[in-house]
């Protein structure tokens, strides 16, 4: 079985040992070597593969334009609304091909995306926003109510704001609304895109705590795309790093967090202190090479 189009090792990267289970057992969600083209011309993903185990939190890391969002949208199939298309490769969820399913079907299967920039329904109240999340489930009013209460236990703040139009709530509350809305679909997996965007560090922490809570208590798996590498790696089990539409590195979260290159490129930490101009040039070259 292949995992990546190109092993990172070949380029002189120290390859962290991947958990043995990953290669053997068919994964919960597996993305195999997909290519995505927008508008029939712009090649955005050039062969991305990744796996998410049941009950895990996997982080998808990388800079702007690396292809994180596109990967998520390829999985949730929101791509087609933006004239994008998966032209190669397969996506499987629980052993079924899902790359030709509509978003509606995917939500029914239990894969739900929380989009970047939150995308709350601005003119709907917080509670109505949550209720739209249950659109795909035909359940009784009582069950709906129970589910709402469950969401409110995770996000007590939303309960206070339940009656206000979500357009007028704060960024953090909107992010909570968006996650809560996804929860209302009773998902098995949430694709979380940039939960930290535009939020104060304290709030970011709070959101990630809740993600972890949901992961452990509700057994929801997460695939989260994040620029805030440090936080993401702290909460995730496993991570993939994308550059220019390719996976350049992956590994267990702790390993990645310890990796010197990751520290240097994504965490802005360097043991060697301030770099000389020469080193920076060298680093740029190395980065380009990786891509």
């Amino acid at each position: 079985m292949f995992r990546r189009s190109r092993p990172a090792n070949a380029h002189g990267f120290p390859m962290p040992a991947a958990p043995a289970a990953k290669t053997d057992v068919a994964s919960y969600l597996s993305v195999n070597n997909i290519e995505v083209i927008y508008d029939h011309v712009i090649l955005v993903l050039k062969g991305v593969s990744l796996q998410v185990e049941e009950g895990s939190i996997v982080a998808l890391l990388g800079a702007n334009g690396a292809g994180k969002t596109t990967t998520l949208k390829a999985i949730s199939n929101l791509l087609r609304a933006e004239r994008g298309d998966v032209t190669k490769g397969t996506i499987e969820f629980m052993g079924q091909r899902v790359d030709q399913r509509t978003p509606n079907e995917l939500v029914r299967m239990g894969v739900c995306q929380v989009m970047e920039g939150r995308h709350c329904f601005q003119h709907l109240t917080v509670e109505e926003n949550l209720l739209t999340g249950a659109f795909t489930r035909s359940i009784s009013r009582a069950d709906l109510k129970a589910d709402l209460e469950l969401v409110y236990t995770y996000f007590p703040r939303l309960k206070e704001r339940r009656g206000s139009q979500s357009g007028y709530t704060s960024g953090g509350e909107q992010q909570m609304t968006a996650i809560g809305r996804a929860l209302m679909a009773r998902p098995k997996m949430i694709l979380l895109d940039e939960p930290s965007m535009g939020l104060a560090p304290q709030l970011v922490e709070e959101i990630f705590e809740i993600v972890r809570d949901l992961n452990t208590k509700e057994r929801v798996s997460f695939l989260l795309a994040e620029q805030n590498t440090m936080v993401a790696l702290r909460f995730a089990d496993y991570g993939y790093i994308l550059e220019n539409g390719r996976v350049v590195m992956d590994g267990a979260a702790q390993d990645l967090a310890q990796n010197e290159d990751v520290k240097e490129f994504y965490l802005g930490l360097s043991t060697a202190g301030r770099k000389s101009f020469r080193d920076v040039k060298h680093y740029r070259r190395r980065k380009r090479w990786l891509a």
Partner: peptide, 24 residues
């Protein structure tokens, strides 16, 4: 109603509506 809410949701944000599984 559920459909009514979905309609308003679609009006507000096509993409987000798709993301929560509302069939446009």
């Amino acid at each position: 109603t559920r459909i009514g809410r979905a309609l308003r949701a679609v009006a507000d944000d096509h993409q987000a509506a798709l993301a929560v599984g509302i069939p446009l």
